[in-house]
C-alpha cells in the first residue's frame, strides 16, 4: 500500500464540496428532472470519489470491489422483488383502498 502515489486528497475534497454545492443549488431551479440528477446523480459521483480515493478501492484487491458491488446488487434485487407489492397502490386482483387520506387528516397523538 505504501508504494503507490497518493492522490491529492485536498483536490478531491474540493471537488466533493463543489458537487455538494451543486446538489444544494439544483432544486432551486425547480425542474424535477434537474433535481433528480443533481441530487442522486451527484450523490453517486460523490460516493464514487470517496470510495475510490479515500477508501482506496482503486488500489485494493479487486475482489473487495466485487464483494461490495454484490451487496448493492442484492439490495437492487430486494427492491425489485418487494416493490411490486409495497410501492404500488394496486396490482393484479388487489388494491389498497384510500384509507390514508383519512389517517392523514386525523390528528396524531
Amino acid at each position: 500500500m505504501s508504494e503507490h502515489a497518493h492522490p491529492n486528497y485536498f483536490k478531491i475534497w474540493a471537488w466533493l464540496l463543489v458537487l455538494l454545492s451543486i446538489s444544494v443549488a439544483g432544486p432551486m431551479l425547480e425542474i424535477p428532472v434537474v433535481t433528480l440528477i443533481t441530487a442522486f446523480g451527484i450523490a453517486i459521483v460523490k460516493a464514487y470519489l470517496v470510495a475510490r480515493n479515500f477508501m482506496h478501492l482503486n488500489v485494493e484487491k479487486k475482489y473487495v470491489v466485487y464483494l461490495l458491488t454484490t451487496m448493492v446488487v442484492f439490495m437492487l434485487l430486494f427492491f425489485a422483488g418487494a416493490a411490486p407489492d409495497v410501492m404500488n397502490q394496486e396490482g393484479d386482483q388487489w388494491y389498497k383502498p384510500k384509507v390514508e387520506a383519512e389517517a392523514a387528516a386525523t390528528p396524531h397523538h
Partner: peptide, 16 residues
C-alpha cells in the same frame, strides 16, 4: 375442500 387459500391483509382488498 375448494383448495383455496388467500391471506387477508389490512389496508388491502384482494379479489378472487
Amino acid at each position: 375442500v375448494f383448495r383455496l387459500k388467500q391471506d387477508a391483509i389490512p389496508g388491502r382488498v384482494i379479489e378472487g
